[in-house]
C-alpha cells in the first residue's frame, strides 16, 4: 500500500510526520520510506541509516554535433523552453531548461542533436533499523523535479513488493511535483497547522486532492495553537481528521537537533499510534 504525506506549504511538519510514522510502523511492519522532496530532501537529516545501494539517475538531453550541423536554426525554433540557443556559428544547450521533449533532436534535418543521457540526480537506499529508506536528490543546478520523482517511484515499485507499506514524503505546494508524487498512491495524508495560514494552504491541498480524485485525510500538527477553524473546516467538508499532534516547544527543540520525536513525549506517541492503527486497518481492507 502506498501513502503520500503532503502539505500545501512548507514548514508544517511533513518531514517530521513521515520520518516518525515510518520508524514507528517499521517496529512491526515491513516499511519503506521514500523522500520525494527531491529539491530539499530533509528526511535524511533525521534518519541516518547504512547506505545499501546508490544509483545515478539520468535524463535525456540533446548534444550538439558540430561536424554535421548546417546551422539552419530549426532547433532553436523548435524548442519552446529556450534550452537550445544558436550563438553565431555554434549551438548551445542548457540542460536545466530542457524538458526532454525530443523535438529539437528528432526534427533536426541532419540529426545533429542526438539525445544523450545526462546525470540529473541520485537515488540512495539505506537500511535504518527495520526499515528501508530511499532518498532521492536532484543535483545542484538541476531545476526539474518531476522526471526524478517519476524515476524514484519506478525504483521503489521495482524493489519493493505490495506487501510493504510505502510512505512517500511529497514535495510541498500544489504544483506539478506534488501531482507527480501523489498520482499513483492509494492514500494521501495532508499535514496542516491550526492557523489561518495552515487552513488557507490546506484548502488548496484539498482542492488538489479532489482534482486528482484521491482518498485523503488530515493530520493537524502543533494542535492547541491557533484556533478551531481547521477542525470546523474538516467537519463541514467531511474530511477525516486522522490525528492531532499536540503543540510543544520540546518538539521544536528535538526537531532542531535532527532527532525523532515519537518516543520522547507520551501524548505525541499516542497520536502516532492512532495513525498507525488507521494505516494497518486500511492495509487490511486494501489487501482484500
Amino acid at each position: 500500500m502506498k501513502i503520500a504525506i503532503a502539505s500545501g506549504k512548507g514548514g508544517t511538519g511533513k518531514t517530521t510526520l513521515s520520518t516518525n510514522l515510518s520508524v514507528l510502523l517499521s517496529e512491526t511492519e515491513r516499511v519503506v520510506l521514500t523522500d520525494l522532496d527531491v529539491e530539499e530532501p530533509n528526511s535524511g537529516l533525521f534518519i541516518k541509516g547504512d547506505l545499501k545501494s546508490e544509483e545515478i539517475k539520468y535524463k535525456m538531453i540533446p548534444e550538439w554535433k558540430e561536424d554535421t550541423c548546417t546551422l539552419c536554426g530549426e532547433c532553436q525554433k523548435n524548442c519552446n523552453f529556450h534550452a537550445v540557443i544558436q550563438l553565431g556559428p555554434q549551438i548551445m544547450v542548457f540542460p536545466e531548461l530542457c524538458h526532454s521533449c525530443f523535438a529539437c533532436s528528432e526534427l533536426c534535418p541532419t540529426n545533429s542533436l542526438p539525445m544523450q543521457a545526462q546525470r540529473m540526480g541520485t537515488i540512495k537506499e539505506y537500511q535504518y533499523r527495520q526499515m528501508a529508506f530511499v532518498e532521492s536528490c536532484l543535483d545542484i543546478g538541476q531545476e526539474q523535479a518531476v522526471p526524478l520523482i517519476g524515476q524514484t517511484n519506478e525504483y521503489v515499485n521495482q524493489k519493493f513488493d505490495e506487501d510493504y507499506i510505502m510512505i512517500f514524503d511529497a514535495p510541498p505546494g500544489t504544483s506539478c511535483p506534488v501531482i507527480e508524487a501523489t498520482k499513483d498512491v492509494d492514500y494521501v495524508i495532508l499535514v496542516t497547522e491550526p492557523t489561518p495560514f495552515g487552513l488557507h494552504d490546506l484548502k488548496l491541498a484539498v482542492e488538489t486532492m479532489k482534482e486528482l480524485k484521491k482518498d485523503y485525510g488530515v493530520v493537524i500538527n502543533r494542535y492547541g495553537l491557533g484556533n478551531d477553524d481547521v477542525i470546523d473546516y474538516c467537519k463541514e467538508e467531511n474530511v477525516t481528521v486522522l490525528a492531532k499532534i499536540p503543540n510543544s516547544r520540546k518538539v521544536a527543540e528535538i526537531y532542531s537537533k535532527g532527532k525523532l520525536i515519537y518516543n520522547e513525549i507520551p501524548e505525541i506517541k499516542e497520536q502516532f499510534l492512532k495513525l498507525k492503527e488507521f494505516i494497518l486497518t486500511r492495509k487490511k481492507e486494501f489487501v482484500q
Binding site: 523552453f81 529556450h82 534550452a83 540557443i85 550563438l87 548551445m92 542548457f94 531548461l97
Partner: peptide, 15 residues
Amino acid sequence: NEAHGAGPKTSQKLF
C-alpha cells in the same frame, strides 16, 4: 512573456 529562460534569451540578443 517568457516564463523561464529570460537570461539566455537576452544574452543572445546582446551577441
